[in-house]
Design a binder for these strands. Structure first.
Lengths: 144, 144
DNA sequence: ATGTTAGAATTACAAATGTAATCGTAACGG
DNA sequence: CCGTTACGATTACATTTGTAATTCTAACAT
């Protein structure tokens, strides 16, 4: 376990923009971010600096400003935070929760096909039931 | 949007135990929690107090201790945090990320069947593609 | 009744986080 | 060359979070 870097919610907003643009400047980020949320330029600068400090972004001087580029891949970072979440909830409830998310999400036809394929393959080795793992020890009666 | 209560990771550990047991005492929680993580009784008391303060748990005096009971349902709370996560990532990437989670997760045969059913129904109205929504405004070229 | 004591309440405190103002400096314009 | 100024760097600060020690108080035992 490499213990992926911690990106906070506020920082996440910034990362999304950098990921999407590939490379950008603080000014561009500030402009874009202010279209979605109310925040001051100085705030965004702080977030950028922290992201550089924690190794999520790289910088290259360009005139008097910097070019920011992602140092971590978007998909693997998203996978990591999703794993963190689903590893932190009751294992018995993961299926229900996933079902809820799938139900809510906007998914493309290809997304759905891919999920269907993954599920079909999973079915082969799927257990009958998944036990709750919230309370270790056999002396307690699980309600799930 | 009722802006569901914020349960922190440390508090989440406590909630899982209370949810699973239905009702319990601080001592029981402390005993169980110390089987999984290294923590002091006083720490757990603090978490319990904060959870009561934010309306996640109720207390009933019982002798010299308290009975703690969940005031929020486990599944709906899990749904909420899952929604928070998937609403915070790039919409274009939700499908990929879900696929990753499904691939990793331990799912029962019933879980899989339920997901397959949900996906089948979704297919009917699924769009061809899902656009990245990371950068509002049409003047920027999205890399996704 | 009263002392003991188990458990809750209070207090503590460092680190992380969100938010931002101000300071310093180097790049660009003239 | 030198002043302006646009940036990043530094500093600030309240809040939240994790972790816990200490204090207070009311049950329980005698």
């Amino acid at each position: 376990m490499t213990k992926g870097l911690e990106i906070t919610p506020a920082e996440w907003q910034v990362m999304r923009i950098v990921w999407t643009l590939g490379e950008t400047t603080s000014n561009q980020i500030i402009t874009i971010l202010q279209r979605k949320v109310d925040c001051k330029p100085a705030t965004v600068k702080t977030l950028l600096r922290r992201l550089v400090a924690k190794g999520a972004l790289s910088t290259t001087r360009q005139g008097r400003s910097f070019i920011y580029r992602p140092l971590v891949a978007e998909q693997s970072t998203m996978n990591q935070v999703a794993d963190d979440l689903f590893n932190s909830i009751c294992e018995h409830c993961v299926g229900q929760t996933l079902n809820h998310v799938v139900d809510q999400a906007t998914l493309s036809q290809d997304d759905i096909k891919r999920l269907q394929q993954t599920l079909k393959e999973k079915m082969a080795t799927a257990p009958e039931t998944v036990q709750c793992n919230c309370v270790p020890g056999e002396d307690v009666h699980c309600q799930h």
